[in-house]
Write a protein that binds this DNA or RNA. Structure first.
Lengths: 229, 229
DNA sequence: GTCTATAACCGGATAGAC
DNA sequence: GTCTATCCGGTTATAGAC
């Protein structure tokens, strides 16, 4: 077939450019006005595209938000790479990782509230527990697996199995606290992170105590059971 | 002023009737078709009212659903009164109280997701952590204070101070799990309640262990600190 | 067959006449 | 307190351009 493939880089590049322009406009506007106050029409206009074009690239307004997640996730990964390469103490790794989450998200604090409420809705495709968010969720869980595995802490196997997902949940709780935090520099959130990260590691160290064995087994069974659903 | 007050019961009653008709129609339709598929226009039509009239009584679609929530809260109180009068075991009281929450809310399950997300929005006046929701929140916290106080469990004072609010938070977490629960009869949620209620009471019993003293003090300090904000 | 654009539709919310 | 007329914005249909 000498006529060969009609797929050319040029044509693809035009699509990519439009897509990037629309996404960039959306992220800008979310940052400027918040999620609710940003209309799809305004996004299209700023991107120099039409409304129909925006919907060609993003099936819904919420899908633009998903992209926004991914963006901050990449920033987060880059921010903590040095720490994870150097530090061996579990509490320090955990504290540093979660601190980096809120620091990375800081420019979007004003938007976070409305995004959260959109996303908390179980019927939203963006719900973090749902299917569409699975790839990203699994990346974050894998990150917490690395936070644990790269440390010098010795974690029992049954706990280690559940720990990354539990830490992901912990991170979500911190983010919800952070959304409400009006303190200057979000200092209160940072304090809470320091306290809780320390407490978690301390309790992990106590998990082998005979008196706690029964509760530990039941708690792990519960978590396992809940995840399966 | 012999012309006196123009407020007559008749006029008030007419308003009440319309209001009740609209609310009733809404609850019926929510039950029949679910929240999303029920339009404000359909509610007005079934109630024999106009769209504008509906908005005269209820500022938004979500407010209609909130009304139902208040209603179920009353039902919940009534449902657990016998249990709280009779039972002395803390685990049983807690389990029964939280079980009754989800049982009472069951007719409401299809709508619960959108309510939760409305209410989770920090900028919403209806946010459970915010000022407007304070009266209802304090009622629920007071209920959990009674769950604890009416039991034969001996709770240290520092824990007792924080416990009702913590249990309220625990109930919220259970409700969020319940929203996602697709199991028949919502059995999985009931199992989780039984497990967690038991676990909580067990851990309360262990709180006096010397090894846990440090963590206990830090955790309580943290909770106290978080609440103040 | 990939991209863009215009013109609707639909339903929540509001304005203002009566 | 009730209505009609309208706005507004997410979403969809669809026609054509490259």
């Amino acid at each position: 077939m000498a006529t060969a493939s009609p797929q050319r880089t040029v044509r693809t590049r035009r699509g990519e450019t439009s897509r990037a322009a629309i996404l960039g406009a959306a992220l800008d506007l979310f940052g400027e006005r918040g999620y609710d106050a940003t209309t799809m029409r305004a996004i299209a206009e700023r991107a120099g595209a039409s409304l129909g074009s925006s919907y060609h690239y993003f099936p819904s307004k919420e899908h633009l938000v998903l992209e926004f997640y991914r963006h901050t996730h990449e920033l987060h990964l880059a921010a903590i790479a040095p720490l994870l390469g150097r530090e061996k103490d579990l509490a320090a790794r955990l504290r540093g990782t979660v601190r980096a989450v809120v620091v990375t998200c800081e420019p979007f604090h004003a938007v976070a509230g409305s995004i959260f409420s959109t996303v908390a809705n179980p019927s939203s495709p963006l719900n973090p527990f749902g299917g569409a968010a699975r790839p990203l969720r699994e990346e974050v869980v894998a990150l917490y697996a690395e936070v644990v595995k790269g440390s010098d802490a010795r974690i029992p196997a049954d706990i280690g199995e559940m720990l990354p997902l539990s830490l992901w949940l912990y991170q979500m709780a911190i983010l919800y606290f952070w959304i409400f935090d009006k303190s200057p520099g979000r200092l209160r959130t940072l304090e809470v992170i320091d306290e809780t990260a320390d407490l978690i590691v301390r309790l992990l160290g106590l998990a082998n105590l005979p008196v706690l064995r029964g509760s530990r087994r039941r708690l792990l069974g519960l978590i396992r059971n809940v995840i399966e659903g």
